Simulated scan of single mutants.
Amino acid sequence: MAWSYRKRIKIIPGVHLNISRKGISTTIGVKGASLNIGPGGTYLNTSIPALGIRNRQRLSPAGAAPPVYDTPEVTTLEPERRGNIFSVAPNEVTSNDMKGVKETIIAAHRQKKELMADLEKVKSSLGLSRIKLVFSYVFLIGLVAKSVRQKIRETITAQQEAVEQINEQIDNSCMRMDVEFDADIKAKFDSLSEAFKLLSQSKKVWDVTAATSQNRVAARSAASTLVMKTEVAIAIKDIPDIKSDVNPLWLKNANGADLYFYPGFIVMYDSHDQFGIIGLDELQFDFGAVRFIEDGVVPADSKVIDRTWAKVNKNGTPDKRFKGNYQIPVVRYGRISLKTKQGMHEEYEFSNYEATESFGHALSNYIRSVS
């Protein structure tokens, strides 16, 4: 009737981001050994104070110069966009400097998965013990029954304690990230978060999945580009395997992995084993306005800046060969584009242009300050 449960769990390394004017450095590890990643390169730090050992070993050279970020003026022209717009598989986009962070997240989830399997086994044993206790009142009598029931109760108590312990271990099986900002950079990130919250209140948010040119004369249309886009959501939302005091900015992806903006990196997250991490210094970001011929309902927070016809001549006049030809509003929407050399390529449109512009400036300013 004896029962015991023992489980040794790994100590998941913590991740510390130090964000200053010199750039973003990432320290991964526990006391005694850590991996430090920053603008000056990647170093392995080893420290055993009791033996007087301290060592710092350089593992990789400093990174390349950061890209230039565009902040285009408002334009009445559509940006040139061709073909499908999507990213490669998330496992293929991880930056070299972010591989240690990814491995930490994978280790945390693997441990959580093992603990959840253990939890199910203990719960099953607990249920069986409770059944045995019920039967002990039916089939056992006298002193023997009292002795058996006492042992079963002790087993149930131990199993209940094990359930509590495992649940606590599951809760702790995650990558814990703490962030240390320079004061001025913290202010810029706070401004970015506020701008994103305002952007998330847009009446419409679309993930642009394709854009192809069309012959305006043949189509009798004022639109030179046909755009395919899907309405999506954006919000402040966490990834289960990462715990941090700083909440990430989440953008739903209609044709791939979702995007989570943390202070030092972007996580392209599809599932627990399908994700990639991209350093902000590798992000090519731009934003601006786009003219869109809106044949549907114009969102309440959008501005109509022009009008055209359903069937239009090259000079903009209505094509009188079509009966019932009608006017269509031309609306100004906001647009952002996110790319990396590793294969990330995402584009979004927003009904609220002013909110898009504020977010675009806030993100550009933040990236410049840490690159």
Rank of each mutant, 00 (worst) to 15 (best):
H109S: 11
H109C: 02
H109G: 04
H109Q: 08
H109L: 07
R110A: 09
Q111E: 04
Q111C: 03
K113P: 01
K113T: 11
E114A: 12
L115Q: 00
A117F: 06
A117I: 11
D118S: 09
L119Y: 03
L119P: 02
L119C: 03
L119D: 05
K121D: 11
V122D: 02
V122T: 05
V122Y: 00
K123D: 13
K123I: 10
S125D: 14
L126T: 04
L128Q: 15
R130T: 01
R130M: 13
R130G: 08
R130I: 06
K132R: 15
K132G: 09
K132E: 09
L133A: 06
V134L: 15
V134H: 14
F135P: 01
F135Q: 12
S136V: 12
S136I: 10
S136T: 10
S136W: 11
S136P: 03
Y137C: 01
F139I: 09
L140N: 06
L140H: 10
I141C: 13
G142Q: 08
G142V: 09
G142C: 11
L143N: 07
L143M: 06
V144T: 15
V144D: 15
S147N: 11
K151C: 06
K151F: 04
K151Q: 12
K151A: 13
I152L: 15
I152P: 03
R153N: 08
T155M: 10
I156G: 02
T157W: 06
T157N: 10
A158G: 02
A158R: 07
A158F: 05
Q159R: 08
E161G: 01
E161R: 13
A162P: 01
V163W: 04
V163H: 04
E164M: 14
Q165P: 06
N167G: 07
N167I: 07
I170Y: 04
I170N: 09
I170W: 07
D171F: 07
D171P: 04
S173P: 01
C174N: 02
M175R: 00
R176D: 01
R176H: 00
R176V: 03
M177V: 13
D178L: 01
V179A: 00
V179H: 00
A187D: 15
A187R: 14
A187P: 07
A187S: 14
K188Q: 08
F189C: 00
F189Y: 08
F189I: 01
S191W: 00
L192K: 04
E194S: 12
E194C: 01
E194L: 12
A195D: 05
L198V: 13
L198T: 14
S200I: 00
K204N: 08
V205M: 10
W206M: 14
W206L: 11
W206A: 01
D207V: 05
D207K: 02
V208Y: 00
V208I: 15
A210S: 15
A210K: 14
A211F: 10
A211H: 06
A211R: 03
T212S: 11
S213H: 13
R216L: 05
V217A: 15
A218P: 01
A219F: 11
S221Y: 02
S221W: 08
